Amino acid sequence: MNINKFRDDTPGTKKVIHFNNAGASLMPRTVSESVINYLREESLYGGYETAHKNRESIEQTYSAIGNFIHAQPNEIALLENATAAWNMAFFSIDFKKGDRILTSKAEYASNYLAYLRLKEKVDIQIEVIANDEYGQTSVTSLEKMMGENVKLISITHIPTNSGLVNPVEKIGEVAQKYDCFYLVDACQSVGQYPVDVQNIGCDMLSTTGRKYLRGPRGTGFLYVKKNKIENLLPPFIDLHAAEWISEKEYEIRSDARRFENWEMNYAGIMGLKKAVQYASDIGINRIWKRLTNLAEKLRWELAKLPKITVHDIGEIKGGIVTFTVDSESADDVQNYLSNKGINVSTTSKKSTLLDMEERNLSHLVRASVHYYNTETEIDKFIDTVKKIANK
């Protein structure tokens, strides 16, 4: 990998050490310029006119995403973020009284809140799958829970904390034996991990553009398996998702764009397309290998420091590294690092309540690396954290 080229392509690497890729990655120049150029064209010629002129280029986004995750273009819907995409999929399912939702202990707060919101309206059951000895969702436990009234298996692939990579492919093998939906939250995994919807066997998968894809904020997409689209009715539709036929009739689209709405951030979409193409040109397997090696080095170096505890779990770990510093709050550590030109974030119990409570954790520092980071940056990070620990 030509790391120097990727860093030259990324102006932000000259300004900061960016270990907050699980929040929002630094964009390559080609991504940010595509957004700026499109906005400039809109300002000169008009929004509708610019969209019409760039229609073919906009359409290519669906193919670019489809190729990247091994889906068809008509199985892709463009949305403004991962939560919007996930909610559109989830609330499209026709839940009935007594239906069961099986989910993971590491489930993200926004998803679990949706389960609770649904339960207020429909008497469904929310059941949490136990973890295995590695701290990941237990496939064996899932198999024992399967059976009558399971309507949905909903799994966060790579949680917002803990480095964990859940075994979504093995979970998919179980799901395909039953008449239920399988929804994967891939918010942290697309652009980091080799996501292949055929290997996963999921019916729906949601993600964002801003994290490991290195796209702009305000972008995301939803994958829906072609043979499941007709079984899902979006919670709301507009004149883009459906056609008004008569006073009492409408006809909804037959492709995944039934989950979209008419108004879109086309400048952001142009950036998203460039981000997907940029990652595709590098190769997701090369990206995964590089960033996991960097993350392992970071974990190893942190674990050697006094007063530092690394809190990552899972048989397979990704690019997210979480830790605590004795007698220092996560926020204070983040602020100290920020003042030294190092970007990290924090994660708290309110984001992954079940996981954090089980592990008796409240707040963590989250350092998340990407392929354009360097070993030298890790060394500088470790030296800075060492100073915090020695205060």
Results as ranks from 00 to 15, higher is better:
residue 299 R to A: 05
residue 248 K to N: 13
residue 274 K to Y: 10
residue 304 K to M: 02
residue 322 T to N: 07
residue 267 A to C: 13
residue 275 A to R: 04
residue 275 A to D: 07
residue 312 D to S: 01
residue 263 E to S: 15
residue 326 D to N: 14
residue 326 D to M: 12
residue 261 N to I: 14
residue 280 S to F: 09
residue 266 Y to E: 09
residue 242 A to F: 05
residue 258 R to N: 11
residue 292 T to Y: 12
residue 265 N to L: 07
residue 325 V to E: 02
residue 293 N to Y: 14
residue 266 Y to T: 15
residue 326 D to G: 06
residue 305 L to Q: 03
residue 253 R to P: 10
residue 330 A to C: 05
residue 290 R to N: 03
residue 266 Y to P: 06
residue 257 R to V: 09
residue 294 L to I: 05
residue 288 W to S: 01
residue 276 V to Y: 04
residue 267 A to N: 13
residue 265 N to A: 13
residue 282 I to H: 09
residue 323 F to V: 00
residue 278 Y to K: 06
residue 279 A to G: 01
residue 332 D to R: 12
residue 331 D to N: 10
residue 264 M to I: 14
residue 260 E to Q: 10
residue 269 I to G: 02
residue 262 W to H: 13
residue 261 N to K: 11
residue 253 R to T: 11
residue 309 T to N: 03
residue 306 P to C: 01
residue 248 K to V: 14
residue 248 K to Q: 15
residue 266 Y to S: 09
residue 316 I to N: 10
residue 300 W to N: 15
residue 262 W to S: 12
residue 283 G to Y: 08
residue 257 R to F: 12
residue 244 W to A: 10
residue 255 D to A: 11
residue 286 R to F: 13
residue 317 K to P: 01
residue 248 K to L: 14
residue 256 A to S: 10
residue 268 G to D: 03
residue 259 F to L: 09
residue 283 G to L: 08
residue 287 I to Q: 05
residue 259 F to H: 07
residue 266 Y to D: 09
residue 273 K to W: 07
residue 267 A to H: 11
residue 244 W to G: 08
residue 250 Y to Q: 13
residue 260 E to T: 05
residue 244 W to E: 11
residue 311 H to T: 04
residue 260 E to W: 00
residue 251 E to H: 14
residue 314 G to F: 04
residue 275 A to I: 08
residue 266 Y to H: 14
residue 300 W to H: 15
residue 296 E to I: 04
residue 293 N to V: 14
residue 262 W to E: 15
residue 313 I to H: 05
residue 268 G to V: 05
residue 254 S to W: 14
residue 329 S to G: 10
residue 266 Y to F: 15
residue 281 D to I: 10
residue 292 T to N: 06
residue 246 S to L: 03
residue 264 M to G: 11
residue 308 I to A: 00
residue 261 N to G: 13
residue 310 V to N: 00
residue 263 E to N: 15
residue 282 I to W: 09
residue 265 N to G: 12
residue 288 W to G: 00
residue 242 A to D: 08
residue 316 I to R: 08
residue 249 E to H: 11
residue 320 I to R: 00
residue 242 A to L: 07
residue 278 Y to R: 05
residue 329 S to L: 06
residue 244 W to Q: 12
residue 250 Y to K: 13
residue 318 G to C: 01
residue 247 E to T: 07
residue 310 V to D: 00
residue 288 W to R: 02
residue 317 K to Y: 05
residue 291 L to I: 04
residue 257 R to P: 10
residue 281 D to C: 08
residue 272 L to N: 01
residue 251 E to D: 13
residue 278 Y to M: 06
residue 302 L to V: 04
residue 293 N to H: 12
residue 318 G to I: 00
residue 296 E to F: 09
residue 278 Y to E: 03
residue 260 E to M: 11
residue 289 K to D: 13
